[in-house]
Design a protein around this nucleic acid. Sequence first.
RNA 1: GGGGGUGUGGUGGAGUGGUCAAUCACAACAGACUGUAAAUCUGUCGGCCUUUGGCCUUCGUAGGUUCGAAUCCUACCGCCCCCA
Length: 402
Amino acid sequence: MKPTFRIHKRSRAGRARLGVLRTPHGTVQTPAYVIVATHAQVRTLTPADIKKTKTQLVIANTYHLWGRRDAHRMLGARIPMMTDSGGFQVFSLGAAKDHRVGKVLKRGHRTTSDGNDFSTVSITEKGAAIRVEGSRLMITPESSIATQESLGADIIFVFDECTSPLHPLAYTKNSMERTHRWALRSLRAHARRDQLLYGIVQGGRFKRLRVASAKTLAALPFGGYGIGGSFGKDEMAATLATVVPHLPDDKPRHLLGIGSVQDIFIAVEAGIDTMDCVVPTREARHARIYTDDGIVDVRKVKYADDVRPLLVSRASIGRLHRLFRAHDQRAGRLATLHNVRWFNLLLERIRAALADGSYVRFKKQFLTRFSPPRREPSVARPKTRIRRGSRGSRAYSPRAER
RNA sequence: GGGGGUGUGGUGGAGUGGUCAAUCACAACAGACUGUAAAUCUGUCGGCCUUUGGCCUUCGUAGGUUCGAAUCCUACCGCCCCCA
């Protein structure tokens, strides 16, 4: 079966749209959040757990699964899947080390490497060579596509280079043009009809390059489009506004590696259909629990007696607090179950709001509660300890959940 | 009764004459995390200050030796072990 994408409603909220992505492994209601399953596993979760979180779509990584086959079998769950091409590792093992940066550049960043974090990547027209523990892995557009075809995800990506936000114009331009040539090679190498191949828009922080990239790729017969690369913290909305209008309207659009709570709203309004991010899973393992009242750093002593229940497992925050403090291995799983469900639930609510026209109101109410404007530091610091039972069990979820 | 050992910051535990406010670990506290080099990493962690530095008080208690002591000596107090 060939995957299809159909838009069934457009919102007045910017370019937001509701759609349905049908794949051989199931149907995805969009906008959707994609859960990261790098090694074809969501860290700490079992296949049954993944189902419990009502995850619609996961993304695995070709670099980490190099030479393997049948990623769905490794995942153990029959749900739609993407594979990334390995292009991001060209960044995270390369320029990200040299520039000491992550995907989103923070305001005021100016550090570069002191030389302790050597890039292990060298890039040529042919592809990227990544040194791994003595040996060397050469990834080319053709070999990336070959692995992605054998992994068998429903949506796959062209092999690209994700540039650093600190790369200058000249480098970014050359890199982007090479990524375009690689995109064409990826397209030619791709044979499976039951997979959608997405092109990836690059261009870094430069508006003209972004436009050029979007136009170039839009002219090629991709099944969908990814928007990749790095952003300044404040530039994402502008970048998406620049790029999206040049992409074919009827094709799905994926925002690669973006997904803080605030980013989700920006992306949805910009007309993004799917986005993936490690935030729910990684931060869960780092003891950050997402709630409608904001992020709970569950290790802090003020949550020791917090009886609010987690999603999915229904364990209390207080219990999770004790598990994290005890370095109990179960903590990561309970936290991940909760966060993944919470993010999926947020997207469910966004879709419902888009469907019934209440999006703008929903967003305002949600964000007011999730991250209230900072109060002036008050003179007498009120106690922050949460009293037993004070919030009851309605802390996160609109009725329906549970 | 005799002999031996030991007492260090929230905890464990280094340090046996100067470079010691005292290695390190844990706890605590604060922060970070955006196509997963990440169930991780960073910072603070006796007090005060004009904080790339300065001052004060600390290593069971009280004295002593010394230019100088957590480190040596004496007494005392607590705890532990062995022999009676």
